[in-house]
């Protein structure tokens, strides 16, 4: 695998149906705890990937817009320099914003500085009623109370592929072999994941795209997530 990857996600908003398959897949893969009702009411819902739903227009000409938001893996991440303990740092090798839970002391500065609000704080120690804890993915640590966490582009899957000796599985570096949990689950193929530095990858072939946009691009954060806005219908031509 080439050094210095640029992992990229494409979100095709034209295909997103808001079904939340990605959300649950992420909970399962990354040991993300579920916030109970009281916590959600307090504004502490916790999903590494969330589907933001915006209303546009008024009844009856109203539109519901779904916007899946997760860590944008910024090239110039605002969360990184503000961390006093290097818990959030940049991985040049993978082109990702790393979050090292064990280094985190919980200043929550990164969360404030994240314009996408995709950093989540463990307000309490996560609880998994036994034996629900048997489901927890051993590849991913369970974050304790007082620690920030966020989407990692399933770094554990990237690491696993990178560190698997070729003889065991064969070189799983072809595009598509490596999928994040959310892209894998997405029924309507609205999420596409790949390495932008690999010219053969699907993301490379899809970008640039005349529908592409990045979220809050004016902030100069250089996100690695590209959104494809709605397409046009040429039926009847």
């Amino acid at each position: 695998m080439a050094e210095n990857n640029k992992w990229t996600m494409i979100v095709d908003l034209d295909k997103c149906t808001g079904c939340n398959a990605c959300v649950v897949a992420c909970h399962a893969e990354n040991n993300v705890p579920i916030a109970n009702e009281e916590e959600v009411i307090k504004g502490r819902g916790l999903h590494w990937i969330r589907i933001e739903r915006y209303w546009e227009g008024e009844y009856p000409d109203i539109k519901a817009r779904f916007l899946p938001v997760f860590c944008q893996q910024c090239g110039n991440a605002p969360c990184e320099p503000v961390c006093p303990t290097y818990a959030s740092y940049h991985s040049d090798e993978e082109g990702l914003n790393g979050q090292i839970y064990a280094r985190c002391v919980g200043t929550r500065y990164c969360g404030n500085n994240c314009p996408y609000k995709v950093r989540f704080f463990n307000w309490r120690a996560p609880e998994f009623d036994e034996p629900l804890n048997q489901q927890l993915n051993p590849d991913v640590p369970v974050r304790g109370a007082g620690v920030m966490e966020k989407c990692t582009f399933c770094i554990q899957r990237i690491q696993r592929v990178r560190q698997t000796p070729e003889g065991d599985y064969g070189p799983m570096t072809r595009d598509g072999d490596l999928q994040t949990a959310c892209t894998q689950a997405c029924p309507s193929d609205a999420l596409i994941f790949g390495n932008l530095n690999d010219p053969e990858s699907r993301v490379s072939r899809m970008l640039p795209n005349d529908r592409q946009a990045r979220l809050l691009e004016h902030l100069g954060t250089e996100p690695a997530v590209y959104y494809l806005k709605g397409g046009t219908t040429n039926v009847g031509e």
Binding site: R44, R108, F120, F121, W123, A145
Partner: peptide
């Protein structure tokens, strides 16, 4: 002991 969950802070207002 119980974590910052006992405060009223939330996922947007972290300070």
């Amino acid at each position: 002991f119980y974590g910052l969950g006992i405060t009223g802070l939330n996922r947007s207002v972290m300070w």
